[in-house]
Design a protein around this nucleic acid. Structure first.
Length: 158
DNA sequence: TAAGTGATCTCT
DNA sequence: GAGATCACTTAA
């Protein structure tokens, strides 16, 4: 479940520093039928990481300037990933990758400490979190059905 | 609201 | 190889 990521921490090691920021916003891209997903037309060189099974990063470059960070989920050969759109006070998937210096060097890498970018469940959220569900952002190309699926999840209002 | 920017995808 | 598109951001 994509919303399970909300409240977990995205941890980034940058040299001596380790930054841990709570995940506040995500979007799910699920399977071949999801017309908003890069994998809806099958495997390509770019989306191949989505087919590798859970636990690896899928990082790609769009609009000539922005990197997007996804964590691959699901079984091998079934394309599914969760786009991390917000952490801490940073909102927007490209701002997040810019701030944490995440680029394609993480693509296909395991989300483990050794890769200097991973996810931790710190179980600190004692307060029940309010999860909002909305349609995904920037996917109007996906047609009337899939562009409206409520696959975007976020904590806290505003 | 539109420009910026370049990788990638889908045809020829 | 060419043309279109794009899971966005910023400045106006």
């Amino acid at each position: 479940m994509a919303s399970d990521l909300l409240g977990k921490y995205l941890v980034r090691r940058l040299g001596d520093q380790v930054l841990a920021l709570p995940i506040t916003e995500v979007e799910a891209y699920d399977g071949f039928k999801d017309l908003a997903s890069h994998a809806s037309r099958g495997i390509t060189e770019r989306n191949a990481p989505m087919f590798e099974g859970g636990g690896v990063w899928y990082v790609y470059f769009v609009y000539g300037m922005h990197h997007m960070l996804n964590i691959v989920v699901g079984e091998k050969d079934y394309p599914a990933a969760i786009l991390i759109r917000g952490v801490g006070d940073i909102s927007g998937p490209a701002r997040l990758t810019s701030f944490l210096k995440i680029d394609k060097s993480f693509n296909t890498k395991g989300a483990k400490r050794q890769s200097d970018l991973w996810i931790e469940d710190r179980g600190e959220d004692l307060v029940p979190k309010k999860i909002l569900k909305t349609a995904r952002i920037g996917v109007s190309y996906a047609g009337p059905v899939w562009s409206k699926k409520k696959y975007r999840f976020l904590i806290r209002e505003n």
